[in-house]
Design a binder for these strands. Structure first.
Length: 254
DNA sequence: ATGGCCTCGGTTCGAGGA
């Protein structure tokens, strides 16, 4: 079973790239973030015509998440239970016995922004909910755009970025809080090239110069992580015309 | 250099992203 995550930065713009990618990259599940489409405008018919099922929760202009799957999606959950949030950032479903949780964690903008405490509060609500979810589902994957670079090696310029939003100590502590639930970072279970990133700024020729961040992650419960046979970042879609600023991350499970 | 790019809504500029 292969599971992937991709922040597409507008599914309206990127749908042809997503469908192309699915034909060349045989994944069973693809989690999408930043679809930026209200539910009535979600292109489910095009995705279904390609042979997939899809569950989605979106809004106009901002946010929006979806889970695309070859096999049936059951027990679809939208949002974090008992957490009021107007922003569409979470969708979960069960596929082939794996609980798949797709998240678009808030950006936070800057430490002095009111979006920053929102991000930290949001992460606490996510973690509290997942504590229950991992107890209920021994095989669970948490995939998405975390907007957190967990370690200095996940930033192209750790000195320049030190302490800033995306890698501040409270954000890294929140990421550690997810690991403390028993979740494992599938990417770091394997030897990886140095300077492996999943996002590059559109400005400054960021991709060409590999000025990137690793902020898109696949975490898995111990029972699922133990069956992980590979995890990689697929940078090819970042070379597309009109690319998303993020590129897919894929994990394979036996 | 408080820059640079891309997307959206809604008009031709501002907000948000990370």
């Amino acid at each position: 079973m292969k599971i992937a995550t991709w922040n597409v930065n507008s599914l309206k713009v990127r749908l042809p790239q997503v469908l192309d990618w699915l034909t060349t990259t045989p994944v069973d599940v693809l989690c999408l973030q930043e679809t930026k489409l209200d539910d009535p405008k979600f292109p489910h018919a095009e995705i279904e015509a390609a042979g997939y099922q899809v569950a989605f929760s979106g809004q106009k202009t901002y946010n929006g998440v979806a889970i695309v799957s070859r096999a049936p999606l059951t027990d679809v959950q939208i949002g974090i239970p008992d957490f009021e949030d107007a922003q569409r950032r979470v969708i979960a479903a069960t596929v082939d016995g794996v609980r798949v949780v797709c998240v678009y964690i808030p950006n936070g903008q800057a430490l002095d922004s009111d979006k920053y405490p929102y991000k930290l509060g949001w992460l606490k609500a996510l973690t509290d909910w997942l504590a229950d979810e991992v107890r209920a589902h021994s095989r669970l994957a948490l995939l998405g755009d975390y907007n957190i670079a967990p370690e200095d090696r996940d930033l192209y310029d750790p000195v320049g970025w030190a302490g800033q939003c995306i890698c501040s100590a409270p954000e890294r502590a929140a990421f550690q809080g997810l690991l403390d639930l028993g979740l494992e970072d599938c990417f770091r279970r394997f030897e990886q090239a140095e300077k492996s990133y999943s996002w590059w700024d559109y400005r400054q020729a960021g991709f060409r110069r590999n000025l990137g961040l690793r902020i898109d992650h696949i975490l898995a419960t111990p029972a699922l992580a133990a069956t992980c046979t590979a995890c990689q970042i697929d940078i090819e879609p970042r070379r597309n015309e009109r690319p998303s600023d993020h590129t897919p991350v894929i994990a394979a499970f036996s």
